[in-house]
Every structure is written in structure tokens, then in C-alpha cells.
Design a protein around this nucleic acid. Structure first.
Lengths: 358, 358
DNA sequence: CTGAAAGCGCTTACAG
DNA sequence: CTGAAAGCGCTTACAG
């Protein structure tokens, strides 16, 4: 249903128009000038072999001369297709998702699709509005990295039952949509096993919200690695905090509340780890020497912090490309059953993790 | 002219379709079910007061029942308007531009427009391809942050003479397009004056490529502040380097090549400043104590580095919103003469700048 | 190999 | 207040 734009007087000239107010050059203009029918021009445009070489050359010359710009929206309408893919991101100012978006756009562009962007800023309300607006452009499909606390039923309502959807990173509920996620459990397991191999025995899991699925998965990987090494996980070693630096810095004290202290922490992500390291330094504890820390994401800063952060690389650009590919597969095979894809993560060992001090 | 997508079989069902392969609900379906004409449905959709309240209610009910989704592309075609704005970014993985894009999308969304995204990764070739592809969707306008070494004539050729364009950040040449830029000169002047006020006398300008317009402007601001304080600018104090951290760290030695050394450096941007600080630390020079450094951009890391970086805040999200507004003004007033807008920058003083050591 | 005709989903004068 | 008709720019059978 139409929204705000009704009264905004959204531009009167299109990008294809030759001068402000002037009409765009159309196939009709080209046909007339080249002395052929519109059908023939259309065939030339679409590269059909049916058209005689001479005719084709004549039409091409005319196309050039009049600076014709193809109107793909009109073509899509007539053909009942779409070359638009909607990309809705929960937080574009997060470099991880910006990089992901760049990957999506890159891969889509290579296949002749175009990216219609929406950013929700983690607001489910904005997400509904953004989705409603983008769906009106009849995208061939949707790549959605859901806002926190998205509700599956709401998404379904605005997205419709027939659309092709790929969910990234978070999965609101039991909707039969394709899903691409990082291997959270395995990543946390790798980090934990690495710390154990260095000699750590008392290891905390630090940061994240326990009700988020990614946090749960990372905690599970941590617990699995601990169990595999015959070590027990204690509730007081699971410390929640919002996934940002200031919060993490402030929560550092929670690690040292009891009589005995852990010697290392597997952090929910890099921002948490970086914040924790600041908090540690503020208490005179030198990360990478007195206390080991690992992150998750391998954001650009991880390699540049002091000490450099041991973390899990997830290659967000490659994830974006993968998401685009998965969606295009879905579009090509609408009836295939929903796919769940898990992207690999790789451990990058740096100075923030070291053997425990004695 | 159509490109790659021809053979990709871009999806057959639209986002609006109710089931894979099924046709979308149209105004015709609603009209039939509600017992009115398509014209009446259209009037209801567009909120016309001409329709009787009862009729309107009946149509609305039917719209709901059949889960009608407006096809804005069709409406735009018929009305010869567009609610699409193309946004082409030189480097989306740079947090500054990601934030800018978020601002653009936010402001456009509020006005009922939708963002068609393209990322060029600083490649003029990709930029041409991306622009050509996006222009085929007949956007109401284009916001372009040009790739390095873009050529105005090329841009003009692919964008056409009638389109509404707002350039951000870099201005390829004398095309009569609207332009939004940061106040580079004033920013560098503020930073330089700040260092002078602290007592520095021998100040370098560090980083950037001398052939880029933003670097030239920042150097000019630096020179102006020096001149205003009656100090001379020496060529050997203008040090070039690529605007990234590793390069800047490696170039640190250039500051100390001669017999006398500067006591401070105004850096081209934050990445350069952060890299320089690493390079200084590696030489045993403690930034913020032995040597003062300023940046440009106020990226999130600037406040979190050790020492925290004195820099110029440019608020990229606000710049994005501003860019959107300027473009919409242009669309509303196509004949107004081209506007040049300069966005303010504000100095943020932190620990990386201090009085010179004696 | 080329053209006339119909139609994608919508909107807009124009009658009534 | 409502409907019949034309048309946005394109494509696709269908004849020839």
C-alpha cells in the first residue's frame, strides 16, 4: 500500500531523461529513427540472433546516437521478473555488516542484479517499515539480517509467503526460510581449546546476552571444549554484558569478584574482548601476559590493538557473497527445501593469548 | 542497454507474489472482489478524498483480505516518477562511508524514497559499470561519492545530462553538479592552531596523497594556520603516504630524517595518525608525551586508542542525511543553479596532543 | 528476418 | 462519487 511518498512529489524526471522535464528516449524513438518496428529494437537490445546483422548495426548506431537508456523497470514489469534484491541490515554502522553488505552487492552485481538497501538500526519497528517499503519494489528476493528481537510472524506478514528470503546471522523462529550463520559453536570451541592447550584451567566466558542465539551457541562451544578436556563449567564463570566496549570494560570486575580468579576469558566478540582488555589494563592487569583473552569476528582493529587480539576470523565479505549466492540458488529453485548453511570460522592466534602466569 | 542479467533467468516470481509461480494480487483482483472499478481502487490506494467512505472501507477490507502489495514500479512507470535514489559509494568497508550510507538511507526512507546501493571499491571501471546498471532503474537522483581518479567526462556520459546528481567528498572536475564536502581546510587549520596554542613551533603535515583534493585542502588549512602564527611552512615537513595504518607506521622515520625534528604532526586522517603513533612507539617515542599527533574523521577508534587521539569530528551519519536532503532539494527545484555545501567539522581534543617536551 | 497487437500493473483525465 | 479508456516503456507470441 502506498506510504508517505505520495505527497513528496517524488521527482518528475527519471534518471534516463535527457533534460530536466524532457521525456526519456524510448524504443519507439529508436524504432522510428532506424526505420524498424519496436519489436525489432527490443530484439536487438536483448541480443537476439534473429535480427539481420545490418539491421542490428543500424539500430545500435541509433541507440548510441540518441543515448538510449534501457528502462529495466518497464522490462521487468512486462516480463514479470525482477533484477532487484532487497538487502536489509540490522546495523550498517558495524564494520562487520558493512563488509557483509559490500560482499552481497558485489556478488549480486556480477549476476546482473541490483541491491535495494535498508538499514534497521536493530529496531524491529523500523524493520517492518523498511521491509514494507522495499517489498513494494517487487524484489526477486530478500537477504535479511534481522534486528534483535524480531518476531517471525511479523516478518512473515510483511514479507509474504511467496517471497524468496535468506536469513543471515539470526533466525527469529521456525519459518521455512533459508538461513546462513557463522559456526558459532565451533568457533568458541576452537578458542577455548586453544586456551586449554596453552595451559589454562580456569577459563571464563565473557560477554553477550544469554538470550541471543549466537551467544547461546558460542557458550555451547565453550562448554563442549571444556567438557572434552574434562573440565567443569561453572555458572559464575558465565558473565553477561552488552556487546560493546564500554560495557565490557565496566564488567571486567565481575571476573575478579570471588576468591579464586580465572586466568583467561573467551569473549563473545572482538568488541567485548577489546573492552575487557581496557578494563583489565585499568586494573593493572596486563592482557596477554597476566591474563589471556580471545575475541570473535576479527574486525580490523583486532590485529592492531595492543596486545593484538587472538580471535576467530569470519570473513564478512565472503559471507556476503555466499548469502547472495544462496539467495540466487533459491530463486532458481523455488521448490527446493529450505537450506541451512554454516560458514566456517578460523582461529587467528595473536599476542592476547599466552600461557597462564604462575 | 541490457547487460549480463539477460541470461541469468532472474527470478520468475516477484516479492509480491503469493506463492512461488502464482500471480501477484493486483488492483484488478481487488476491484472485482469489491465490486468497483480499478480506478476506484487506485484512488483508495492513493488516499483520495473523492471516494465515498463506505466504498473506501469496502476496498480497504478487500486489500487486507487478499494481502495486496502495491507495485510501486508499475505506478512509477505510469506516473513517470521515481521513488528510487541511487547511492554509489567508493568504499563501503570504510566505517566513515558505511555510516554516511546509513545516514543517506535513513533520511531518504523518511521521505518515502528507497536506496539503490552500489559500491565501487575505489575502482573507476567498476564505478562505470555500477552507474550504468543503476541508471537503468530510472532513479529520481544519484548520490555519488566518487572513486579516486574518476573522470568527469566518463561520469557525465554514463549518468546523462538530465539526471539529478549530488557529489560527496570528491569533485572530479567542472561538471555543474551539486557538491557536498567536509570543511577540510578549516579542520586542518583548527588542528594546527591547537598545536600552536599548546606551544609547538615545528609542526609537520603527515600523510595523504598530494594529488588528492582533500589532501590539498587540508594542507592549505595547515599552511594558513602556520602563516597566521607567523611561522614558515617547509617543504620537507610535508610528508606523503597512503592513507592507511601500515604505510603511516612505516613512514614515521621520514619525520626524523633531518638534523632538527618536528615536535608535532597534523595527520591527513585518523588512520594515518593511528599508524604514525604505532610507528612512533616502535621508535621509543611516546605519542602524547614526546610528540603530539592529530587526526581527521573521529572514527570510533580515535577515542579508544592509547593515547586517545585528538581529531576532527565530521559526523558521517549527519553528512549522509544532509546529502539526502540536498539531493531532494535538487529534485524539487531542477533549475536552481548548482549548490556547493561545506559541512562543518569540530575539533575534539584528547591526550595525543600536549605541550611540547623540553 | 520483421511487424502488428496485446498486455505487465498501475494512474489519470474525461464523462456521467 | 464512480467507470471506461488510454497509456507509461517494454516484451512476446503470432503472422507473414
Amino acid at each position: 500500500m502506498p506510504r508517505q511518498a505520495n505527497r513528496t512529489g517524488a521527482g518528475t524526471s527519471t534518471g534516463a531523461s535527457k533534460g530536466a522535464g524532457k521525456r526519456a528516449v524510448t524504443v519507439t524513438d529508436i524504432a522510428r529513427a532506424a526505420g524498424v518496428s519496436r519489436a525489432t529494437v527490443s530484439l536487438v537490445l536483448r541480443g537476439s540472433p534473429l535480427v539481420h546483422a545490418d539491421t542490428r548495426a543500424r539500430v545500435h548506431a541509433e541507440l548510441q546516437r540518441q543515448r538510449y537508456v534501457y528502462n529495466r523497470a518497464a522490462a521487468n514489469l512486462r516480463r514479470r521478473t525482477s533484477t532487484i534484491v532487497a538487502l536489509v541490515i540490522n546495523d550498517l554502522s558495524n564494520p562487520f555488516f558493512a563488509e557483509f553488505a559490500a560482499g552481497v552487492d558485489e556478488a549480486l552485481g556480477e549476476q546482473g542484479y541490483v541491491t535495494l538497501l535498508g538499514n534497521t538500526g536493530e529496531s524491529p519497528q523500523r524493520q517492518q517499515a523498511v521491509l514494507a517499503s522495499l517489498m513494494e519494489h517487487a524484489p526477486a528476493g530478500l537477504i535479511l539480517s534481522p534486528a534483535e528481537h524480531s518476531e517471525a510472524a511479523q516478518l512473515r506478514a510483511v514479507v509474504g509467503v511467496g517471497s524468496h528470503v535468506l536469513l543471515f546471522n539470526r533466525e527469529p523462529a521456525g519459518q521455512p526460510w533459508d538461513f546462513l550463520a557463522l559456526d558459532n559453536a565451533h568457533g568458541a570451541q576452537l578458542a577455548t581449546a586453544h586456551l586449554i592447550a596453552l595451559g589454562h584451567r580456569d577459563i571464563a566466558f565473557f560477554g553477550g546476552h544469554a538470550d541471543s542465539s549466537s551467544c547461546q551457541q558460542r557458550r555451547a562451544g565453550y562448554a563442549a571444549a571444556m567438557a572434552a578436556a574434562g573440565m567443569e563449567v561453572q555458572g559464575r564463570r558465565m558473565i553477561e554484558c552488552a556487546p560493546n566496549r564500554p560495557e565490557a570494560a565496566a564488567q571486567a570486575q565481575a571476573l575478579f569478584a570471588g576468591a579464586d580468579r580465572p586466568t583467561a576469558a573467551v569473549c563473545y566478540n572482538d568488541n567485548v574482548a577489546l573492552g575487557l582488555m581496557l578494563g583489565l589494563a585499568a586494573r593493572g592487569i596486563q592482557p596477554g601476559r597476566d591474563f589471556s583473552v580471545t575475541g570473535f569476528d576479527d574486525i580490523p582493529e583486532a590485529a592492531l590493538s595492543t596486545p593484538a587480539l587472538t580471535t576467530l576470523a569470519v570473513d564478512p565479505r565472503a559471507r556476503g557473497r555466499q548469502a547472495a549466492q544462496l539467495l540466487l540458488q533459491r530463486i532458481a529453485a523455488p521448490e527446493a527445501s529450505p537450506a541451512r548453511s554454516i560458514a566456517p570460522v578460523v582461529l587467528r592466534v595473536r599476542q592476547s593469548s599466552a600461557p597462564p602466569p604462575f
